[in-house]
Design a protein around this nucleic acid. Sequence first.
RNA 1: GCGAUCGUAGCUCAGUUGGUUAGAGCGCCGGUUUGUGGUACCGGAGGUCGCGGGUUCGAACCCCGUCGAUCGCCCCA
Length: 424
Amino acid sequence: MAKNTQAPPSIRGTQDVFGPQAEAFAFVVETFERVRKLYRFRRVEMPVFERTEVFARSIGETTDIVSKEMYSFADRGGESLTLRPEFTAGIARAYLTNGWQQHAPLKVATHGPLFRYERPQKGRYRQFHQIDAEVVGAAEPQADVELLAMADQLLKELGITGVTLHLNTLGDADSREAWRSALVAYFREVAGELSEESQGRLEKNPLRILDSKDRSDQRFVAGAPKIDQFLSDEAQRFFEQVTSGLDAAGVAWTRADSLVRGLDYYRHTAFEFVPDEGSAAAAALGAQSTVLGGGRYDGLMESLGGPPTPAVGWAAGIERLAMLVGEVQSETKFVAIAVEDDLRSDDAFKLSQLLRQGGFATEVVTSGSARKRYDKAVKLKPDVVLSLSMQAGEPKLSATAFDDEVGSAVAAITSAFAPSASRS
RNA sequence: GCGAUCGUAGCUCAGUUGGUUAGAGCGCCGGUUUGUGGUACCGGAGGUCGCGGGUUCGAACCCCGUCGAUCGCCCCA
């Protein structure tokens, strides 16, 4: 180890992913790509950074989110830029600036890194990764249903169990506002008994009291006014169409009438896939319980200066999904070649290429003590170990198959292989 | 921003009430078992005990500070 030079540390909240974790991460992305095509969502690639105003205007200038939790910086021209903290705002901006209205209703999907300046904890990082699906320009509840069906199928194909769709409606703008006022009035009555945090929320973000983690708050939450009392006929019909569509599509769901969204642009459907209490999934995720979440954001486009445009979408953290995916094993059969004599090195190259071209994952062990290379190859846990050595001046190839079927398939390739190492 | 817990070898961790040259397993390197084998045995390299100060004859161990990590709170687009 060099003692004078110190390796630079990683940035707080970033991760270097390797091994089974990295395989699980890739599996999530691959599965998402496959499923998204089944629902005919089109792939989009979005910039990792935007003008700060793209996020500030869509999220709301004054919120903590914008003031404290974004990675913003000035570029050399003095422009304030921000590393994207979410996909939705950028996609909305692109929809407006590229004339994507012509494709409406536009179904798009993407994935990649996002950045939020937060204190890291289990399942929360400053650079994290999400998969994302949006339907822009669709006012119909059928869009919500299709989007949720896709999410449901994705989770199933990832093999994730013990997770349930929690569903709520926030109503249209009027319903939502009426509900909000009623909640404020209700909680004000008992303000003195609320937790300190919730007393603050009463002014800033009363809906958030509903998902307070404080025990004493929860006593009052149970008796709080429900959105259902304030839904307009239209909003109610919209929600009914979503739920009946989900039932028809075979998507299990549960009503969660205290599920809310903090930002004002959300309307109607709001949803989260949440681990069931006491499930393995819940234990694996710690305090970060939501696996996939989203909703309808009919009010967003206008805050970006566009025409009123209905839209609905969801996103899910790849890291969190990866934590719920078990060990992913490769389907590809694996051959390890031990080069027990350096004279056989070129033969190993020749043979390994034949095997790889034949569809076998192949690794060649050529380093370290020659007599230990076989053991090294075995420790890689291959399906077949091939040994290349010299015996009495003659090249020798032997095979040990830990899987008979793979063994004979590999033998078909090795039997046609002509060694060339007799030279010396 | 706040709180709790934790920093000993590349990795996972031991290290007894403070007491000589700081240990194990795995991994790595080398050597044996004159071998067709998922071994076993022997040896080796690798540590400013996160960093700085203090208490003490003596600190990995006790105290203070600091940095970092983890988990939680706030926030959650």
